[in-house]
């Protein structure tokens, strides 16, 4: 009886791990889409409303919600309170949300160019940087979606089968 309960727990645990990994793969394209929308909103705030960066980041962050919303709001706080540069504030904010989101560290790379330019370039030249960032995020989203289709199901099966295999080996 004890063995049976143990086996059920093992299969349940490995299945859970598999589903969790699958969820991360499925969530990443959604998070990237949200980030893309947030970047486009930030572009509008910068180009059309000419809103100062900390205010623009807070407004866009609160509108977007999720991990990317938190990223923007945290970056704005770093700007206002720590006296860090724009690039440093974005990097510090990215680190603080990395563990609680489906993003990979490379997902923030497209925004490096924008972050480095925001404080020094006029709206005309920032337009190009925003376009590049948007294209890179779109591409990353497509790749993440393909990866999710391939890997999410694999991780689900892997979770269940690993549990079953473990139980067989233990018996």
């Amino acid at each position: 009886m004890l063995k049976l309960v143990g086996s059920v727990i093992i299969v349940f645990a490995t299945t859970l791990i598999g589903f969790r990994m699958a969820h991360a793969y499925r969530e990443r394209p959604r998070e990237l889409r949200r980030l893309l929308q947030a970047v486009q909103q930030l572009q509008a705030e910068v180009e059309y409303h000419a809103k100062p960066l900390p205010r623009a980041l807070i407004d866009v962050g609160q509108n977007s919600g999720g991990a990317c919303g938190k990223w923007f709001v945290t970056a704005a706080k770093h700007l206002q309170e720590d006296g860090r540069s724009v690039a440093e504030s974005f990097a510090a904010a990215a680190q603080s949300i990395a563990s609680e989101s489906a993003y990979r560290s490379s997902d923030f790379d497209p925004l490096d160019g924008v972050a480095a330019s925001l404080a020094t370039m006029d709206a005309l030249h920032l337009h190009g940087q925003f376009q590049l960032a948007a294209q890179a995020l779109e591409q990353a989203e497509v790749q993440a979606r393909e990866e999710a289709e391939r890997s999410a199901r694999l991780w689900q099966y892997l979770g269940v089968l690993a549990g079953v295999l473990l139980v067989i080996l233990l018996y």
Partner: peptide, 17 residues
Amino acid sequence: EHVMQQVTQFSLYAVEE
């Protein structure tokens, strides 16, 4: 540079005009 960043609020684009 510090003064300029504070004055422009890190947003040169916002004070272009």
